[in-house]
């Protein structure tokens, strides 16, 4: 197991994972408000890490990742009290993965802006299909009574953030990950040196959907209700992309930095000056894209970010 050895020797990764795990103490130390903040942070870390696994490595920018999150939420909400949560949450991940696998085959045929638009459109399509199904069976929204406590959900979410980080790290260091980077640098060249591009793209896309599926399920439990337009909200996709860009996706800590930065921003301004908040986010996005395209991680840890690209 050379991959495992590599991880045990990777001090930065171990410290990072440990600090994720240490958030289990947040509820006890700082109370329930900060527990929710920690839960949100872990959610964005999980989503952004997963997004990075596919879009960061291949350069195929998915603007529809919310669809996996939404479908996972739907699985958990519609099987609530029917299936135990330890079945339904993973099932959400599996269903999201299967959905990704099914759409990957047609969607990954297009590149560049067409891919971006197609993923966005696809997420909207699924959103309205689910909405119509729900309406036709007479459910405008579902209340989830008796969901686990915030603490429990936080622990699950920390687990998902750790798994998402490990997955992304393992993939980026493997032959498979190198192949994905080759696709990003030049897909035709990658193909001519013998990278199985189609297989790699489909696998990465599927892998990157599984964690968001489970995250969606946990978040539905957190809000204790399920409302289609909310869990399939495209703003979630945009936020993930923004976090990945601001944080930087060349370093495992990048997605965390991006998520933490935006959350901090929203904690500071969302309640007091909500009109300014989105403007600020937009400004930061522009500033980062222009001046620091590799994100916060590349500014803080320049050498390492380059290594892992």
């Amino acid at each position: 197991m050379t991959a495992l050895n590599g991880i045990l020797k990777d001090r930065v990764l171990l410290i990072f994972l440990t600090s994720l795990v240490l958030t289990v103490f947040v509820p006890d130390l700082f109370g329930s408000y900060w527990a929710i903040v920690a839960l949100n942070l872990m959610m964005w870390v999980s989503l952004t890490q997963s997004w990075t696994l596919f879009s960061g490595m291949t350069g195929y920018i998915s603007l529809g990742h919310v669809v996996f999150y939404g479908i996972g939420a739907y699985v958990v909400a519609s099987t609530f009290k029917v299936l135990p949560l330890w079945v339904s949450i993973p099932l959400g991940g599996v269903v999201a993965g299967v959905l990704a696998l099914l759409v990957a085959i047609p969607v990954l045929r297009v590149r560049g802006p067409y891919f971006v638009i197609l993923t966005f459109g696809l997420a909207e399509l699924v959103k309205y299909i689910v909405l119509n199904v729900e309406t036709s069976i007479g459910k405008s929204s579902r209340l989830l009574f008796g969901a686990p406590t915030i603490e429990t959900l936080l622990y699950i979410m920390i687990g998902l953030a750790v798994i998402a980080t490990l997955m992304t790290k393992l993939v980026s260091q493997s032959r498979f990950g190198r192949g994905l980077s080759a696709i990003r640098d030049d897909e035709i060249t990658a193909e001519t040196v013998g990278v199985p591009v189609v297989k790699y793209k489909i696998t990465a896309f599927t892998l990157s959907a599984v964690i968001p599926g489970m995250v969606g399920g946990v978040i539905a439990l957190k809000s204790t209700y399920f409302e289609v337009l909310q869990v399939f909200n495209p703003v979630i996709s945009f936020t993930v992309v923004t976090m990945a860009i601001i944080g930087g996706s060349g370093d495992v800590r990048g997605p965390f930095m991006g998520a933490a930065f935006l959350l901090l921003l929203s904690e500071l301004f969302w309640a007091t000056i909500p009109q300014i908040y989105m403007i600020l986010v937009g400004l930061f996005l522009i500033v980062f894209v222009v001046f620091a395209p590799n994100g916060i991680a590349a500014i803080l840890w320049p050498a390492r970010s380059r290594d892992s690209q």
Binding site: E191, T192, V193, G194, V195, P196, V197, V198, K199
Partner: peptide
């Protein structure tokens, strides 16, 4: 055959 198999 897919392209990578031809490379092989």
């Amino acid at each position: 055959l897919p392209s990578h198999a031809r490379v092989e």
